[in-house]
Simulated assay, not measured.
Amino acid sequence: MTTHASTDQSPPAGPRMMGGENGFIDEATQAAISQRLSQIGSQAQQRTAAYSSQGAVLWSQITGRLATGKLMRPALAMLGYRAFSGRNEPRAIDLACAFELLHSALLIHDDVVDKDFVRRGEVTISALYRDQALASGRSLPDAEHAGNSVGIIAGDLLISEAIKLAARAAAGTDSESVVEQAFFQAIEQAGAGELEDLLYSLGSAPATTSQVLRMEQLKTASYSFQLPLQAGALLAGASMGQAENIGTVGCQLGVAYQVIDDVLGTFGDPSRTGKSVESDLREFKSTILLALAAEQPEFAQMLKEFRSGKVPAGQIRDELASQGTEQFARQLAEALCSRATGSAAFRDLPEGAQQLLRTCSHLILERSR
């Protein structure tokens, strides 16, 4: 497997950044986002307590899980906003938090779809309510159904809160309708991508490479990169053309991010990723690794035997390693990042935005390398 990617991926010089994948926002902004998320959760818990004690308990569980991740999506919304010199930071913080609430909701729903009760080494909300049902004497299938039902409810509550917050951030501004449209698009495309991911996993063969890349654009790149950047820019007063430029660059970076995520899901360190290196394989997820390897007839036949239970997941993983799929996937991610930061859309962005997006590209490619 070969690719023609060639780019200098050394990190650019610039202002001091935070470490990790949210390295393009300063510590003060991260703290402001975290504080606002806690406030939003507490307010929702207090409102709910007036009419439902159980609802208040659920919001308490939700709130305890907010602002515990990388806050990458809020960081990108703030990047888009500041790239075009927005002057109302409280509005931008609310928009940024709306994207994090949406992300939290989608993670909860994704755990239900994937039947996962642990995320990054911590039990999920579904697991907590499953265990309560088990303790009350319910069978395991009934308890898991109860836990997943609560997970669906929790995700729905977060999506509702996210929509309200995004609308409030844009209310009364010249860009109100286009910011709201961008946020709604994030929800719609994430849902479409999740659906395609699920349906591909039910097929007898993995999706093709082009299908996987399109699915990953919808499921991850759109709501995680493209639309936070685009919505932030629009809120700051950028033109539609300017917002589309930063969104286009973000979309390519977002697909690269998911390609690296596929690599880590099979070849990463579980102690760092919080995920088994065989879970994607057992669920027959259509990752870029499987799509690339399935182009070889011998591997396609091995996959059929794996699907029927005749071949263990470890053997599939070993075959993926021997075919060099990790190296090829990383080269593909490098090509996507290079294309993004070398595009006309990128060159039309303000210099400060270019610098931060180069940093973003570097952080994506260096994830757990």
Rank of each mutant, 00 (worst) to 15 (best):
S210V: 14
V212N: 09
L213R: 12
L213W: 09
L213S: 05
M215R: 14
M215K: 15
E216Y: 02
Q217A: 13
A221N: 12
S222N: 10
Y223T: 12
L227G: 08
A233H: 11
A236C: 08
A236F: 07
A238Q: 08
S239L: 08
M240I: 12
A243W: 00
N245S: 15
N245Q: 14
N245E: 08
I246A: 01
T248L: 00
V249A: 06
G250N: 07
Q252Y: 03
Q252D: 11
L253S: 05
L253K: 05
L253G: 06
L253D: 03
G254P: 04
V255R: 03
Y257S: 01
Y257I: 05
V259P: 03
V259W: 02
D261N: 13
D262F: 00
D262I: 07
D262H: 05
D262V: 03
L264V: 06
G265K: 04
T266H: 10
F267R: 11
F267L: 08
G268M: 04
P270G: 12
P270K: 04
S271I: 03
T273Y: 06
K275H: 07
S276G: 13
S279G: 04
S279V: 12
S279M: 05
L281S: 02
E283K: 14
F284Q: 12
K285C: 05
K285G: 04
S286L: 07
T287H: 03
A291P: 05
A293P: 02
A294R: 02
A294M: 02
A294S: 15
E295C: 02
E295H: 03
P297Q: 09
P297G: 08
F299D: 06
K304E: 13
K304H: 07
